[in-house]
C-alpha cells in the first residue's frame, strides 16, 4: 500500500488487484499502525478489482479503529465489482463512498 499526506488527511492507496482472505491478513497487519492517532483517512481503492468478505472485514476493522479514536474513513474510486459487493451486504450504509479522491478529501473539508 502507498500512504501520502494531504494537509491533515492520510490518503492510503491499496495496491494489488485483490483484497481477499489471503491478502487481507497482510493488509490488517500493516494498516493498523498507520492509522494510529489519525483522524482523517481516505482509502483509494482504484487498483482493486476484487474484494471478498475477508477484505470487507479488514476495511470495517480500519473504520472501527478510526471511529474509536474519534476519526473517520472515506472510500473512493471503487470498481464496479467492489461496489457491487459492498452494496450486496449493505455496507454502503456504513462506509462513506466517493467517486474520486478529490470528493473524499473535500468531504473532510480539505
Amino acid at each position: 500500500m502507498k500512504a501520502e499526506e494531504y494537509n491533515d488527511i492520510l490518503i492510503v492507496t491499496l495496491e494489488g488487484k485483490a483484497l481477499d482472505a489471503a491478502s487481507s491478513k497482510v493488509f490488517r497487519a500493516e494498516i493498523g499502525p498507520l492509522l494510529t492517532d489519525r483522524k482523517k483517512v481516505v482509502f483509494d481503492l482504484a487498483d482493486l478489482d476484487f474484494v471478498d468478505s475477508s477484505g470487507l472485514g479488514a476495511l470495517l476493522s480500519s473504520l472501527r479503529q478510526l471511529n474509536g479514536q474519534g476519526g473517520d474513513l472515506k472510500l473512493c474510486n471503487l470498481s464496479k465489482p467492489v461496489r457491487a459487493l459492498i452494496e450486496l451486504v449493505r455496507m454502503n450504509r456504513v462506509f462513506d463512498i466517493f467517486n474520486s479522491r478529490e470528493e473524499a478529501i473535500a468531504a473532510f473539508g480539505g
Partner: peptide, 15 residues
Amino acid sequence: DVVGSDAEGGFGLFI
C-alpha cells in the same frame, strides 16, 4: 444479520 451488523466477518455465507 448483515444489516447494521457489528460483525467484521460472517458475510461469506450470505454472499
